[in-house]
Structure formats: structure tokens, C-alpha cells
Design a protein around this nucleic acid. Structure first.
Length: 343
DNA sequence: CATGCGTGGGC
DNA sequence: TGCCCAAGCAT
């Protein structure tokens, strides 16, 4: 391998220390609780979105035992709006597992971390490398882009063998010396390269510390990587939302089932058709609100609010919530928006 | 191995 | 504007 690995790693480390990001609120610590909290929030979520949520969580639960002792509904309430809500429920379960299985201290190896709920291979490696200097590779979206370009790795990562091979290559490229110092900077450096220079559409190769190593740059078309042949197939679905309000302004909400969309959140009653909704409220005067589209990654949800003024909803498992009550619940973003707009 | 799972931002 | 993308994981 012509000595590429060592040169590559030290270039990334040196660049991170001088040109990488150092001011993010979860970077000034090796406390695994804070690093874990940030890593889970950052899964498929951009830094700018996470910042406010991270500060609120840390202020509310300064350590893992406090989070473990919280009610799940309160965790979902603070997570509300961040998306991918299974992360919040796994976060809570993980905190409880750290307390119960590990006496309140996060385990110090990536292998042990990966046994905890919501911590997969990449998140485990991020925590272990940042906090404990372990020599383990992360492979998130940013790093996949950086490494496939540097290596000229032209196999579609949708195939599992291709992704396994890239994990192996990522491991070979890791630093080999002075790991307590180099591993945190290397891990952060790959993320920073992907987030600030090695961009999806317009990579800034002239500023890149590993341009000399980069097959994609040498070929003249780094944006060819990563290769993606599979096309995203979008679908659409219509849902009707019963917006029942009492004269005092309270709203009828139900906790959603533990699986599927918005699992565990509080929500207006959801129906697959106008007829199903109307059939359940034959005696009430229904007023159709303005439908709107809520876009998910794979699906457009066409949401149809149906307003009804009543103080009786004949459904099991829900309840009336006044504004100060529903404001702090975990609500789907479009439902929160609808309730806020309705006053 | 493929799919489901949120939301917001960039171009 | 319709895509693509974002510090992925669980099933």
C-alpha cells in the first residue's frame, strides 16, 4: 500500500488541528455522556439543527442517571421536532442500560458501546475514538464521501459486501501512533473534511490537505463518488386528522403506537380516509380545514385536518390537553404547527 | 438485504 | 421546484 495510510492519517490530523472545527459545544469534552448525546442527535441530522436541542437536553439532564430517571414522555417532549423519534426512545433506554448494566459509567470500548440501544457501529466508534482514543473507524455519510473519493472507490455502497469492504479500508487508513492524541483529531478531521471541503456538489479540492492522495481529484471528477445506482422511489399517502376542540380550547390527543411513523408521540386521531373519520363522528358538525403536504424522505403525506367543536370524543386511549399541556408533549412537527396556527 | 423512520436546508 | 443530503440504526 505504498505508505499511503500513514501519510493520509497524519495529514488529516494536522489539518484538523489547524483548519477543522473546534467550537462545537460537544467538542470541548471527553465526557462520553455528552459525546454520546451529540452523536445520537447528529444521526442523519445537520449540526445547525442539533445545537439548540443539545443545549436543552444537557440543561435538563446534566448526566446519564438523570436522563435514565426521566419519564419517556418528557424525553420525547424535548426531542419533539428533531425527527427519527426512535432515536429518542433508544436514547432513554440506553441511559437506563448504562445505569443498570454498567453502574452509570459508559463502557470504554466500541464493541461494548455497540451493544447499547441506538448505538450502531459508527456511533460506537465515534464515542470510543473521541473519548477513549480507541483505534476504530467511523463511516457516516461525510466519511463515505471523503473515502470513496480519496480511494477512487467506484462500487455502489448499496451492496453490503461493498460497504463491508469500505469499512475495512477505513480501518486500514486509521492512525497507528499516539492514538490518545491522534484518534480524536482524525475522526473529527474526516467529518470536518466532508462537512466543509469535500462537499457533495462542489468539493473545494484546492484547499484539501489530501488532494495529493486523492484518486477522485486526480481523475478530475471527484463528484463521481460515491457511486449510487439505486434511485429513491417516492410515494404519497393521504391522512385525515381529527382536530377536536372543547369550548375551553383543550384538544383531543392520543399517544401513537410504539411502531411506525411518529411512534410514541402524541397526535391528533389519524384516519386513512374522510369516510372512516366521518363514520366515527356521525353526530358532529365537521368542518374541513385546508389540506397541506408534509414531506418525508420517502413519502409525501397529504394531511387533511377536520375540525369539530365538541366536548365528547368516543375513542379509547386519548385525552384532552390544554395548551400549556400539549406544548410540552412530543408532537409531530406538522401537528404542532397545526395546533399553533389554530391558536 | 431492503425497508422504514422526520425534519430542515441547499441549490 | 423537485431532488439530494445530513455525525445511521433497527428489523
Amino acid at each position: 500500500m505504498s505508505g499511503l495510510p500513514e501519510a493520509f492519517a497524519s495529514r488529516v490530523v494536522r489539518w484538523q488541528k489547524t483548519h477543522g472545527r473546534h467550537a462545537l459545544p460537544w467538542q470541548a469534552t471527553r465526557d462520553p455522556y455528552r459525546v454520546w448525546l451529540s452523536e445520537v442527535m447528529l444521526q442523519q441530522t445537520q449540526v445547525s439543527t442539533v445545537l439548540a436541542y443539545y443545549e436543552r437536553f444537557l440543561a435538563r439532564w446534566p448526566e446519564v442517571a438523570a436522563l435514565a430517571a426521566a419519564p419517556e414522555d418528557e424525553v420525547l417532549g424535548l426531542w419533539s421536532g428533531l425527527g427519527y423519534y426512535s432515536r429518542a426512545r433508544n436514547l432513554h433506554r440506553c441511559a437506563q442500560a448504562v445505569v443498570e448494566r454498567f453502574g452509570g459509567e459508559f463502557p470504554r470500548s466500541a464493541a461494548q458501546l455497540a451493544t447499547l440501544p441506538g448505538i450502531g457501529r459508527s456511533t460506537a466508534a465515534a464515542i470510543a475514538s473521541f473519548c477513549f482514543g480507541e483505534r476504530v473507524a467511523i463511516l457516516d455519510g461525510n466519511v463515505k464521501r471523503v473515502l470513496t473519493r480519496v480511494l477512487g472507490y467506484g462500487v455502489d455502497l448499496a451492496s453490503a459486501p461493498a460497504e463491508r469492504a469500505l469499512w475495512d479500508l477505513a480501518t486500514e487508513l486509521l492512525p497507528r501512533q499516539d492514538l490518545q492524541d491522534t484518534m480524536p483529531a482524525y475522526t473529527q478531521g474526516l467529518m470536518d473534511l466532508g462537512a466543509t471541503l469535500c462537499l457533495p456538489r462542489k468539493p473545494a479540492c484546492l484547499l484539501c490537505p489530501v488532494e495529493a492522495d486523492c484518486v477522485g481529484a486526480r481523475e478530475g471528477e471527484p463528484t463521481r463518488y460515491p457511486v449510487k445506482t439505486r434511485k429513491l422511489r417516492r410515494t404519497a399517502e393521504s391522512l385525515w386528522l381529527l382536530h377536536a376542540r372543547k369550548p375551553d380550547g383543550a384538544v383531543w390527543l392520543e399517544k401513537r403506537p410504539a411502531t411506525g411513523i411518529w411512534a410514541g408521540l402524541y397526535c391528533l386521531p389519524v384516519y386513512a380516509s374522510r369516510e372512516l373519520l366521518a363514520g366515527e363522528h356521525a353526530h358532529a358538525t365537521l368542518e374541513d380545514g385546508e389540506a397541506f403536504v408534509h414531506a418525508l424522505t420517502h413519502k409525501d403525506l397529504h394531511l387533511h385536518p377536520v375540525h369539530v367543536a365538541t366536548d365528547r370524543v368516543a375513542r379509547a386511549g386519548g385525552g384532552w390537553f390544554g395548551r400549556t399541556e400539549w406544548e410540552v408533549l412530543g408532537l409531530p412537527a406538522p401537528v404542532r404547527r397545526l395546533l399553533v396556527d389554530a391558536g
